[in-house]
């Protein structure tokens, strides 16, 4: 079976972790790593593993378009607009791990099937990937009037980009809680905790349901959703039982990463790359099935 060729723009930590995840896929073939610094560790690692390396960014990649079918962008929101314009015009699929959100918000367990044909898919935020499946698991049982998520990540897992633009997390995640999670209104909070040894990513979903009385169905739906997310993030798990208080439900989660490139406590970064890889994988399977 022919695999789809993958390019990754951004040879930093996210790009490297993604590369390791692509290597495990049976539908994707890691092909080229694109960076802007020929001396970067990320490009060296990719070259050592036998992949093509482009050190002059998108311009270099545009000269080697035959190397890619799907391109992940792990750079910045600002750079992404330009990358996406060029790649989409060239007929490539683009998966966006930046906060640019040009394409639709995509959470694999919730709305992947709706967006296969779109040229550009956005992966929301780490907190969004961890919590929106749960918001959706509740809202598919009972109307959710309001959902609020609290993501707590180890300080060491929050890079300079996230730190400098912390409001973007709030904006993007809240919007996606509504658009993908199905809550009428969404809110997001992010907390950085510097404890040593670093803490695992924790996420809490608080939701106000339109009515109580559906507790058992909500729990069942949440448990099913957790299993689905575990198919691509094995360390995704509930902490204790969902807690109900009238129309309010609180769901406690922790996310342990696969430890590919990031340490396992960086569940926040792992769930982003794992979700992006999952999207590409499913996309590849669909495209291949369509060709047959």
């Amino acid at each position: 079976m022919k695999k789809l060729k993958v390019g990754i723009i951004g040879s930093g930590n996210i790009g490297t972790d993604l590369m390791y995840k692509i290597e495990r896929s049976d539908a994707l073939q890691m092909s080229v790593m694109v960076g802007i610094d020929p001396d970067s560790e990320g490009l060296k690692r990719a070259a050592e593993r036998g992949y093509e390396v482009v050190a002059n960014g998108i311009d270099g990649l545009m000269e080697k378009l035959e190397l890619v079918d799907i391109v992940f962008d792990a750079t910045s929101a600002k750079a992404h607009q330009h990358h996406s314009d060029l790649l989409v015009a060239a007929g490539k699929k683009v998966i966006d791990l930046t906060p640019a959100a040009i394409g639709p918000f995509t959470v694999p367990t919730v709305n992947l099937n709706e967006h296969f044909e779109k040229p550009n898919l956005n992966m929301v935020t780490c907190g969004g990937q961890a919590t929106i499946p749960i918001v959706n698991a509740i809202s598919r049982v009972v109307e959710v009037e309001y959902a609020e998520i609290v993501a707590t990540v180890a300080s060491k897992s929050a890079g300079p980009g996230t730190r400098a633009n912390i409001d973007e997390f709030t904006h993007t995640t809240s919007k996606a809680i509504e658009q993908v999670g199905g809550a009428k209104k969404g809110k997001a909070i992010i907390i950085l905790n510097p404890a040593e040894p670093p803490i695992l990513m924790r996420d809490t979903v608080h939701a106000l349901m339109a009515a109580d009385g559906q507790e058992q169905a909500v729990i069942t739906s949440i448990n099913e959703m957790v299993k689905e997310v575990q198919s691509y993030v094995p360390g995704y798990r509930l902490r204790g039982e969902p807690q109900f208080d009238g129309r309010k439900v609180s769901v406690f989660l922790e996310v342990e990463g696969a430890g590919d490139f990031f340490p396992p406590y960086s569940g926040n970064l792992d769930i982003m790359t794992a979700a992006a890889a999952k999207v590409a994988n499913e996309m590849a399977k669909q495209l291949m099935a369509a060709e047959v």
């Binding site: 707590t152 809490t204 902490r239 204790g240 609180s250």
Partner: peptide, 21 residues
Amino acid sequence: RMKAVGGQEDLIYDVAQSFAA
């Protein structure tokens, strides 16, 4: 002991539940 920081009120309920369990 867990070095909780400001804002982690959710952790209170998580810890209480695990003690009860």
